[in-house]
């Protein structure tokens, strides 16, 4: 993808996701991502995090970076740890620029445990996985060998307006969503 086009898509995405209370960052390399996420965790006072291993987290050596700062990192046993962990980190498959949406296209239950039960979800994504529109995204998913068992769009933290139509952030899903785009090509998630 052309650099200008990528910048344009990223800017659209960032504008959209910030409108729905998401945080959005962009870095060059997986190592920079590791530093950035580590700082975010410290800033938010996170003591333990559920990390679902992915190309970006491995390339960026996330586990070591965090542990050096005294953060406990869980990389398995997610059914036990995610109900109480303070944050979860997963890599997602695509981003939809038009909507500021992340796309998980993965049947793996751990992908959802680490991104739904935790109060803070940190999503990693390769910048080249940005897709311009919803329509293009549906076509991309449709062109996969088969529709993955679970495809989830995530657009901001969970929300409700069920009481008196007052918007309240953080119901059953995360209360905060942090998205980190990585420009370096490290490969998407399976």
């Amino acid at each position: 993808m052309h650099k200008d086009q990528q910048d344009d898509l990223y800017n659209k995405f960032k504008t959209k996701i910030e409108l729905v209370s998401g945080e959005c960052y962009r870095v060059n390399t997986a190592l920079e991502a590791s530093e950035l996420v580590c700082n975010v965790l410290i800033e938010k006072g996170i003591k333990d995090v559920a990390l679902l291993n992915s190309p970006i987290s491995q390339k960026g050596d996330f586990v070591n970076t965090f542990e050096k700062k005294g953060i406990i990192v869980y990389t398995d046993n997610f059914r036990q740890v995610t109900p109480d962990a303070q944050a979860g980190i997963t890599q997602v498959n695509y981003g939809i620029a038009e909507l500021g949406s992340l796309v998980q296209a993965d049947a793996d239950v751990n992908q959802r445990l680490c991104s739904t039960l935790v109060p803070i979800h940190i999503a990693l994504i390769s910048t080249d996985k940005l897709i311009p529109t919803l329509k293009d995204t549906m076509a991309t998913i449709h062109s996969l060998p088969e529709i993955p068992g679970f495809v989830g769009f995530i657009t901001g933290p969970s929300r409700t307006s069920d009481i008196e139509r007052v918007l309240t952030i953080g119901v059953h899903g995360p209360k905060q969503l942090v998205v980190v785009f990585v420009d370096e090509e490290v490969g998407g998630v399976a």
Binding site: S101, V109, M138, G149, F150, S161
Partner: peptide
């Protein structure tokens, strides 16, 4: 796509809901 474009906009004035979940067949569970 068409319904995803209309449903959140017409229902709650959102561009898209926080979550859209597409389930095809059984997936693994604990």
């Amino acid at each position: 796509t068409h319904i995803l474009q209309a449903l959140p906009r017409s229902a709650t004035g959102q561009q898209i809901t926080s979550y859209v979940s597409m389930v095809t067949g059984p997936t693994p569970a604990y």
